[in-house]
Design a protein around this nucleic acid. Structure first.
Length: 269
DNA sequence: CGGTCTACCTGAAAGC
DNA sequence: TGCTTTCAGGTAGACC
């Protein structure tokens, strides 16, 4: 999926097309996403989109009757196209805009979601989320304290939404490499000093990826269809066996929580 | 409670 | 060449 940078790039891309636009029609071409898409989503029809926000990897399109919640899963992406453009395979949901354009959610694997949240409500999916990584709430001291007595490997720890949201497999691998921390190290045994290095690195890595338009591996595209360019800056992800950029040792790969984990055994301790 | 594992789904790539 | 297996950006929910 799109990790946080890709979702934020999507938000930035669609906002000028969607914000303050009236949604003339909602088309649900395939309602079987991760959860069935509720008919509530049709409430957006005829209303103006008054906000386009992001919480973790969720996007929220607000109107006076509530908000549509979108999640891109592993393979989802959002595109803004002319409404008369033919649908592509896996274009499951579309929001036709008064401007003549359409916002389309394409998601081959359908791990994504489209849900509804009434005004003043906070969807249960959003209530248990930890701090946003790009805010001051995500601070080394807080993460350090949260990590005490945790035996889980540091990589899985920073991918836990209760610790910090939005850090997925790519950026977890990248951040740990830059911080020189072995991905398997117990979270509870990482010192405050090392969290003080890691936390800013996570923030910088995510921020840089947003600036680059995100990471395009295969599915992800920006809302105008162009790829993101951060993949060119990946130091370890997808580079198993290739030389470490620092010491030239071949990078190793292990599996943690069934996710591919690439690191340098020489530089990461 | 904390920790681990499965399940959801399509399609590209690797393996045979 | 073609069939089979593996793997992929996520994460809720089941299970121990």
């Amino acid at each position: 999926m799109p990790e946080l940078p890709e979702v934020e790039v999507s938000r930035l891309g669609i906002t000028p097309h969607v914000l303050n636009q009236t949604v003339t029609k909602v088309n649900i071409h395939n309602a079987s996403m991760r959860w069935p898409v509720p008919d509530d989503v049709y409430q957006l029809q005829g209303l103006k989109v008054t906000s386009v926000e992001r919480r973790a990897k969720y996007l929220l399109l607000g109107c006076e009757l509530g908000s549509v919640i979108l999640h891109l899963g592993m393979s989802g992406n959002l595109r803004v196209v002319s409404a008369d453009e033919p649908l592509k395979k896996h274009d499951h949901i579309e929001f036709i805009l008064a401007s003549g354009k359409a916002l389309r959610l394409n998601d081959a694997r359908r791990f994504g979601a489209c849900l509804w949240q009434a005004p003043g409500e906070c969807h249960t999916l959003l209530t248990k989320l930890g701090p946003e990584p790009l805010t001051d709430e995500f601070a080394a001291k807080r993460v350090y304290e949260h990590s005490r007595n945790k035996k889980v490997p540091i990589k899985q720890f920073i991918m836990d939404n209760a610790v910090v949201v939005g850090v997925g497999n790519i950026y977890a691998n990248e951040s740990l490499f830059k911080a020189g921390i072995h991905p398997k190290r117990e979270a509870g045994k990482v010192s405050l000093k090392r969290y003080q290095q890691l936390v800013p690195i996570i923030k910088e890595t995510l921020a840089a990826a947003i600036t680059q338009g995100g990471t395009t591996l295969k599915d992800f595209a920006q809302s105008d269809g162009k790829p993101g360019y951060f993949a060119q800056q990946l130091l370890v992800y997808g580079r198993k066996g290739e030389p470490c950029v620092t010491c030239k040792e071949p990078l190793k790969e292990i599996r943690l929580g069934q996710r591919s984990t690439v690191y340098c055994s020489n530089c990461q301790k």
